[in-house]
Simulated scan of single mutants.
Amino acid sequence: MSINPQVLPIDTCIEHININGQYTSLAAPIKLTGQLYLPKLTAEYLSIAAQTKSLPTLQIGIDEAGRGPLLGSVHVAAAILPDIWSDLIENQPLRDTPLSILTDSKKLSEKKRDTLYPLVQQYALGYIIADIPAAIIDQLNILQATMLGMRLCTEGLLEAVASNVADVQTRQVEVLFDGNRCPELDYAKLAEFGLPSSAIDCQAWVKGDARHTSIAAASVLAKVSRDQTMYALDSKHPEYSITKHKGYPTKAHLQAIETHGVLSEHRRSFGPISRALASRALSGFTE
């Protein structure tokens, strides 16, 4: 297998982490995967600096998929688009580009999302995807698990950039999070990579996946990667028809849980699952 020296792969498994000053053992590993296109990233931002005579801004879009389902992991993704493509969707920065149909993944058909998924990976200057298992959702709650995923995607991508792209310490960073809040980053750790908190501007964008191309790109990565895990789970447990509901609490899904029981990938802290477990316990079933 050949290795492309221009591409830096990101492949990390996190089992312990500092959360609010406490060293925490996670209930299951968090997987982070992605890559950076080093020459493209370096050339673009150094070129912008030369043209504008000012410090270039590194813009990162962050989004998640899978907060509502009863089954499986929540996925979070971060994407760095080329500077000229990273803008408000209404300004049409993607016109006449391979990503011209990109918008909020929820507004795209599955076929269009599947078409865009490899294109975003190909044309983004860098991206990262976090898989946050159901066990961690149960450990932390869905909001905190999602915030942790957003934090890890941000830190993982920034640390990779800072470690491998020249003069990143001179850059300003804008991190655009879909939603109404930003995660609390480990600024002390980022400062060790030459990124002080003063250089990092975190912004919460309500419905940002329909407003900004970088967040929309992250939304496609998160949505399609999560769907892929659902298809893999469906092949292991076809009796649950996971491909049809992708873990959401449909009538068919709830009926499958009643008939076949709760899987290890179900979110036990979610009401329908905890009630199903209690009901089966009363009936003498064991999971």
Rank of each mutant, 00 (worst) to 15 (best):
D178E: 09
A130V: 00
K236I: 04
T57D: 12
I273Y: 09
Q6S: 07
M147S: 10
L277H: 14
G126V: 03
N180A: 10
I80C: 12
P56L: 15
R226S: 02
K107G: 04
M147G: 04
I136G: 06
K31G: 07
F270N: 01
L102Q: 01
S54P: 09
T42P: 01
V168M: 14
I10V: 10
S264V: 03
Y37M: 04
A256H: 13
D227F: 05
P9N: 02
E184W: 05
K112P: 02
I136M: 03
V173G: 03
T146M: 01
E258C: 05
K236R: 14
I89P: 00
V168W: 08
L41P: 04
L116C: 01
L158E: 08
V173D: 00
C202W: 08
K40D: 15
E15L: 11
V175F: 07
V7I: 15
T115L: 15
M230H: 03
T97G: 04
A130S: 05
A134G: 00
Q203N: 10
I200C: 12
I129E: 02
I215F: 01
S214G: 10
T146S: 06
S219K: 02
V220H: 06
R95Y: 14
E110G: 15
Q35Y: 02
Q6K: 13
M150K: 09
T259C: 11
G208P: 13
V206K: 09
V120C: 06
